[in-house]
Design a protein around this nucleic acid. Structure first.
Length: 423
RNA sequence: CGGGGCGUAGUAUACCGGUAGUACGCUUGCUUUGGGAGCAAGAAGACCGAGUCCAAUUCUCGGCGCCCCGACCA
């Protein structure tokens, strides 16, 4: 894409109403727009980044047998009443509204209920199980206080997968696969080293749930990490009893701040029983389906990547999620060759144009800064945008066919012959 | 929800009970071009409502919005 066509602009200064690093940089770089407190729009660069994250998650969910669907945002009050999760006393962050025709509805905070009901129409025999279904959907949570930029909003994208299994053993087996899939996802987006499987409260569902916590001072959670075993315990439940149960030693645990980037809940029959999701086993006996839920927020993940990787010049994206893989920066200017320096500038511009076309033809995702701005501004903006590789087209490139390739993360510069740019 | 703070051009900010200033950005022209360029000219602003006052962007009250600390986060 030509940058002259990109409608978003960068800003030199951070917005006054943001404190979180992720929001400051994403707004400055034109990736997102704040609509209201805790409510953000994703602009072209932000959406491309988010879509890349979604794509990675989708691939890993499909790899473990997940079937993608999408459910509604509007929720059926009657359904949620059956599991006792409609009452504001029980769940306090609903956005509720009413139909003109009468009756109440709410915007989905999670989707155990609707999916369980859907499954009652499709699951009736042991032959129908197991089933793994997931979606990417905007969730709405009426948080009293949004904070931390895109990491804790009132409206946010969530991948939620639900598993439906015959029994505990089958559930457990999938649970292990889902955990492995999560590990792969965090590795692929570059957070693997700092992300820990963390034991936390199972809430109303079970003794423990598992969280994936990425160590960061921007986090809201406190966890105790055993670095050698690569697992952690959430502070909420970190008692001597729990430590012993998990086979850990208090002396080896280190306190860290962390961001919860994913979680897995054992749901048991918490939803299948009240909603009547059961199957007939081989012997003709009716049994409730055993469920699990597996959440992962792509938008929060995007914020977490910013928090961990950005530097004092701006965003830094790993190749796997970057909105473009190459930022082609032309130092030339299309123009009148008869003017002083004009011929040279025009040559540079033409060289860059041709390189852009060839890169696009080769299938490279490239953002081409073809604008007529000062060099300093172009480089500063390029740093802010955080695209992993920058190819600079200058005088030298025209004369020698050698291009400067700058690695955004390390700042390393490599003089590269044209042919190798396509490698 | 408890406590605190703040609402001034697109953005970031200053001052002031009497004509609202600066920087970036934007427009036009000329110059400039390897790290957010220079000169000149220009467009653009007081969240909403009520009150006090000769006069309110400024003071008071209410509303709305935003931020921070805490609480909450199935």
């Amino acid at each position: 894409m030509r940058q002259s066509q990109l409608f978003t602009k960068t800003r030199r200064e951070a917005p006054a109403d943001e404190v979180a690093k992720n929001a400051q940089l994403l707004v400055r770089a034109g990736y997102i727009h704040k609509e209201m407190a805790g409510v953000y729009s994703y602009l072209p660069l932000g959406l491309r980044t988010l879509n890349n994250i979604v794509k990675i998650i989708r691939e890993e969910m499909n790899a473990i047998g997940g079937q993608e669907l999408v459910m509604t945002a509007l929720q059926d009050k009657e359904l949620w009443s059956r599991t006792d999760r409609w009452d504001d006393e029980k769940v306090d962050n609903w956005f509720k509204t009413s139909f003109k025709s009468g009756g109440e509805t709410g915007l989905g905070i999670t989707h155990e209920e609707p999916l369980t009901r859907i499954m009652t129409e499709h699951i009736s025999s042991y032959r129908d199980l197991p089933v793994y279904a997931y979606q990417f959907q905007t969730k709405f949570r009426n948080e009293l206080r949004a904070k931390s930029g895109i990491m804790r909003g009132k409206e946010f994208l969530m991948k939620d997968l639900y598993s439906f299994s015959k029994d505990e053993a089958e559930h457990k087996a999938f649970y292990e696969k889902a955990r492995e899939a999560y590990v792969k996802i965090f590795n692929r987006v570059g957070l693997g080293d700092q992300t820990y499987v963390t034991f936390a409260s199972g809430g109303i569902f079970s003794e423990f749930s598992e969280e994936f916590q990425t160590v960061s001072d921007a986090g809201e959670d406190t966890i105790y990490v055993d670095e050698s075993k690569k697992i952690a315990i959430n502070k909420e439940i970190c008692t001597d009893e729990v430590i012993a149960k998990l086979g850990l030693k208090r002396e080896k645990l280190i306190e860290k701040k962390a961001i919860e980037v994913g979680n897995i809940f054992n749901l048991g029959t918490r939803f299948s029983e009240p909603l009547g999701l059961s199957y007939t086993d081989e012997t003709g006996v009716h049994k409730p389906v055993v469920m699990g839920s597996y959440g992962l927020g792509p938008t929060r993940l995007m914020g977490t990547i910013v928090e961990l990787m950005a530097d004092n010049k701006g965003l830094v994206w790993p190749e796997s999620v970057a909105p473009f893989s190459v930022h082609l920066v032309s130092l030339g200017k299309e123009g009148d060759p008869s003017r002083r320096g004009g011929a040279e500038a025009d040559e540079i511009s033409k060289t860059a144009d041709t390189l852009y076309d060839d890169l696009v033809k080769a299938g490279v995702e490239v953002l081409y800064d073809d604008r007529d701005n000062s060099v300093g501004q172009k480089f500063a903006e390029s740093d802010l945008l955080g695209i992993p590789k920058r190819i600079v087209v200058g005088k030298k490139s025209v004369e020698t066919g050698i291009f400067e390739v700058v690695d955004r993360a390390t700042g390393n510069v490599v003089e590269t012959p044209r042919a190798e740019l396509f490698a």
